[in-house]
Design a protein around this nucleic acid. Structure first.
Lengths: 117, 117
DNA sequence: TTAACATGTAATTACATTATTACCTATAGA
DNA sequence: TCTATAGGTAATAATGTAATTACATGTTAA
């Protein structure tokens, strides 16, 4: 279980699409270096490092030094915690109420580009 | 499945802790009015409405008019989509690599205050 | 119709995040 | 050593988000 503060950091980290992309890349190439990671983005290496810092402070990415480079890895623990938050706290209720919610959505005409997804 | 743009809106909406709290409240009292929701927060009603707008644009909350008030409901669909993203795209890999990731984290000494060696 | 109420919009200000340039540190290998 | 390389830090500019006050719209009930 994460503290409220850790939860804040994880959600803040996930709120930027480049950072979500970074998680995808590190997942696909565990042990990727900072430079290799940065080469996948249009922004500067420094911008990527700033994002990396946010991800590391949220503990979504962990790293180990390897000579003059640094190897990056995904850390699943915070994601597991979020998964548990949603499933335990939300989904258990939400699933029970799915039909109510869906009908409410349709009645409100807010969900109308596609009435069925 | 959500578009990249819809995904952006959902993560952005979830990034603010007041908005996550609002989801909890609406889940617990489906059909809650805007004013009732606002009474749970220290900020102004307008600030709450701004948050509400973000949540509605992310389709995490839907609403129906009821006379001069508005009833709010949770919409589980975007959460389901995220859940599927993480589980299909991330967790399947992450779970396979848990031990690798954990040992990497410990080697880097980034994941715990305790240096267990 | 009118008063009170519930909600909504606009414009502004304060604050936080993102991306940049310039500079600094540490390592591998000729 | 010296130099190219990989990474890291600091300060700042540009952009985006959050919260506010003031005003506007629409609904109920007397």
């Amino acid at each position: 279980m994460l503290t409220k503060d850790e939860m804040d950091r994880v959600f803040a980290a996930l709120s930027h699409s480049s950072r979500r992309d970074m998680l995808d890349l590190v997942r696909d190439k565990p042990g990727l270096s900072v430079g290799e990671l940065a080469s996948n983005f249009d922004v500067t290496r420094i911008a990527v490092m700033n994002h990396l810092k946010v991800l590391e402070e949220a503990r979504l990415i962990v790293s180990e030094r390897d000579g003059r480079s640094r190897r990056l890895y995904l850390n699943a623990v915070p994601i597991q915690a979020i998964y548990e938050r949603w499933t335990d706290k939300f989904s258990a209720h939400w699933l029970d109420r799915m039909s109510l919610i869906k009908s409410a959505a349709e009645a409100a005409g807010k969900d109308t580009e596609r009435t069925d997804e």
